[in-house]
Structures are given as C-alpha cells and as structure tokens.
C-alpha cells in the first residue's frame, strides 16, 4: 500500500469515523444538559422571539456600526479566509471529484470554478491565514487568550492549505507524495475537529439563534 493509498483509504475512513462520531457526541452531551423553561413574562411572544433568533443567526455576521471601526479589519480577515476555504473546498475541481467519489454520487449539477480562479483564491487564503497567525501572536488580547487549541487548529488548517497549493503548483517533490501529505493533513484536521475549536462550525448558528431568541423575548438589543 502506498502512502497515498493509505491516506485516502483506511486513514481517511478512520478520520471520517472519528469526525462523525466525535461531532455527534460533542453535540449530544450539550443537549443532554437540557433546556430550562423560562417563567418571566416575555415582552415578545414566541413567534416574534423565534424570528429574532433567526435574524441574529445572519445579522451577527456583520458588525454593528458602533463596533465596526475597531473590529472591521479583524472580521474582514476572518471571514475572508473562511470564504476562501469554502470556495476552494466546495468548488475546486479536484475537491468536487473527491467529494463525489467519497459519497458515491454523480451530482451533475455540482459546479466547479476554473483552475486559475481557485489558484488565486488559494494563495489569497494562505496569505490571510498567515496574517491571522501574525495577528494572534502580535495582538495583546489575542496573545493573552490563545492556547494550544487556537494554534493547533490554525496549524492544521494552514498545513492542509499549503500542501494543497504545493500539489497544485508541483512544488516540494512528487505530486503523489505531496497529494498524500495533503490528504493526511486533511485527515488529521478531521480527527482534531470534534476535540477543539473547529467545532465552532457547528456551534455558531445555534449559539447565535439562542442569544437572538432570548434577547428578542426580552425585547432587548440584539
């Protein structure tokens, strides 16, 4: 078995199993804690509060004008690399082929972007990830808050990106070897995912919805 076969064979399957089971377990353990019933007289009824919750799910993606002067740059960088990652992973031709093979679907409707666009986006995303790290190290607040999870989650995401770029541009050795390392690093990302902050992908919308609902119930600021 070559390293590439190992990476996209047993290791990938193991990583996917850890990812799926880990994510489910982490979510289930939170749900097991239960939701309490609120007894205070609500200012807004259930429907209006639920609409408030749904609204915040989207509206919190854009900073309030009172804060944008201080947070705008950080948010632009953050959302920038997330958007880059999503486009590359979901619309880059090799990735679309990978997903189709993995899930055994033909999905003729699944669009892809021209390679040139994805290449430019990849370099931009890698650059933004580097800026993210520099910011985390140099910004006093971020430095103070950061822990192993923050750095390792960055490291593994960056490694997946860089090995992908190397594979596409033929850098660093044989294509098969670099591709294998790209998939291995992706597998490590999948394995790490349920244990660390990468889980925010699953938490972000429920958390926003809950705070939006509770604040709307009180008629308070969202």
């Amino acid at each position: 078995m070559t390293i590439l076969e190992f990476a996209r064979g047993p290791m990938l399957h193991f990583a996917l199993a850890v990812f799926v089971l880990g994510v489910i377990w982490r979510i289930v353990t939170i749900l097991f804690l239960g939701f309490k019933r609120y007894h205070s007289e609500p200012r807004n009824g259930l429907v209006k509060s639920l609409i408030g919750g749904m609204t915040v799910t989207g509206s919190r993606s854009w900073p309030h004008k009172e804060f944008i002067g201080r947070t705008g740059a950080g948010e632009a960088i953050g959302y920038g690399y997330h958007i880059g990652l999503f486009i590359i992973v979901l619309l880059g031709t090799p990735h679309v082929v990978f997903w189709k093979n993995l899930f055994g679907v033909s999905a003729g409707w699944w669009p892809t972007l021209p390679g040139g666009v994805v290449h430019v986006l990849s370099i931009l995303t890698v650059t933004l990830l580097l800026i993210v790290l520099i910011r985390r190290i140099s910004h006093p607040v971020l430095r103070r808050l950061s822990n192993f999870d923050d750095y390792f989650s960055w490291f593994i995401t960056f490694t997946v990106m860089v090995t992908g770029v190397m594979a596409v541009f033929g850098l660093g050795g044989r294509y098969e070897t670099i591709l294998a390392w790209h998939i291995i690093s992706f597998n490590v990302l999948l394995i790490w995912f349920p244990f660390g902050k990468l889980m925010h992908a699953f938490f972000i919308f429920p958390t926003r919805a809950v705070v939006g609902y509770l604040q709307s119930r009180k008629g308070a600021a969202t």
Binding site: G34, K36, H139, L142, L145, I204, T207, V211, L214
Partner: peptide, 19 residues
C-alpha cells in the same frame, strides 16, 4: 444547561469582546 454549555463551547478566542 445546554444554553450555557453551547456558549462556553462556541468561543473561538477572537478577542472582539475586548473592543
């Protein structure tokens, strides 16, 4: 409860709250 746990788990250490 689940609400507090969700909120604790969701933090990404972005530091914006300082602002």
């Amino acid at each position: 409860g689940a609400v507090s746990a969700l909120q604790i788990e969701a933090c990404i250490h972005c530091g914006m709250c300082a602002d």
